[in-house]
């Protein structure tokens, strides 16, 4: 069991990337989620986004469409996730997204060609215990079980170095 733990921003991003891959999200979407995590208020999250069939697909695809001029787009998602994805998209595009919150998500209207208000990455913070345990459980699904031959040959080095 993992107790609630203060983690560095990089640890959180790396853990989310791995958990999203372990949860079955395609790599590119896992990367988007990991990048958005820099702006994600973990305490306001109501569910884990690290598996397929959820907001981690709908949100980036809605932003893709709006960025390609195919907006507006309606999405259903956690407000904390929406804020995080929007912040990440604005920071990386250097543009401002015009959008509004709805009762269960958001409507993304369009990107405008002007710099946005500054978004500050949330940095080091405490990951709630239940979420941390869940992320770890998903992340280890990317690990290959240990075997004798893997241990002996997989790393390309012997087991002791006393020379």
């Amino acid at each position: 069991m993992n107790s609630a733990q203060e983690k560095s921003a990089n640890e959180i991003e790396a853990l989310v990337l791995k958990a999203a891959r372990g949860g079955g999200l395609p790599l590119g979407l896992a990367e988007d989620l990991a990048m958005a995590t820099a702006y994600l208020d973990l305490d306001r999250l109501t569910g884990c986004p690290c598996s397929s069939g959820n907001a981690a697909i709908a949100l980036p695809q809605a932003l893709d469409a709006v960025a390609a001029g195919e907006g507006p787009k309606n999405v259903e998602a956690d407000s904390a996730l929406i804020v995080a994805y929007v912040a990440n998209a604005e920071v990386h595009s250097g543009k401002t997204l015009v959008w509004e919150a709805t009762s269960n998500g958001a409507i993304f209207h369009r990107f405008e060609d002007r710099a946005t208000d500054e978004h500050t990455p949330l940095g080091r913070r405490t990951v709630p215990q239940a979420l941390l345990t869940h992320l770890h459980d998903l992340a280890v699904k990317t690990h290959v079980p240990e075997t004798e031959s893997s241990r002996a040959g997989g790393a390309g080095a012997g087991l002791t170095d006393n020379d």
Binding site: P26, L27, G28, E31, Q61, D64, A68, E70
Partner: peptide, 16 residues
Amino acid sequence: TVAEFLALHPEHRAAM
């Protein structure tokens, strides 16, 4: 557009 392609093929997002 790339947006349309990735909506149908999210598995190619990282490669794109």
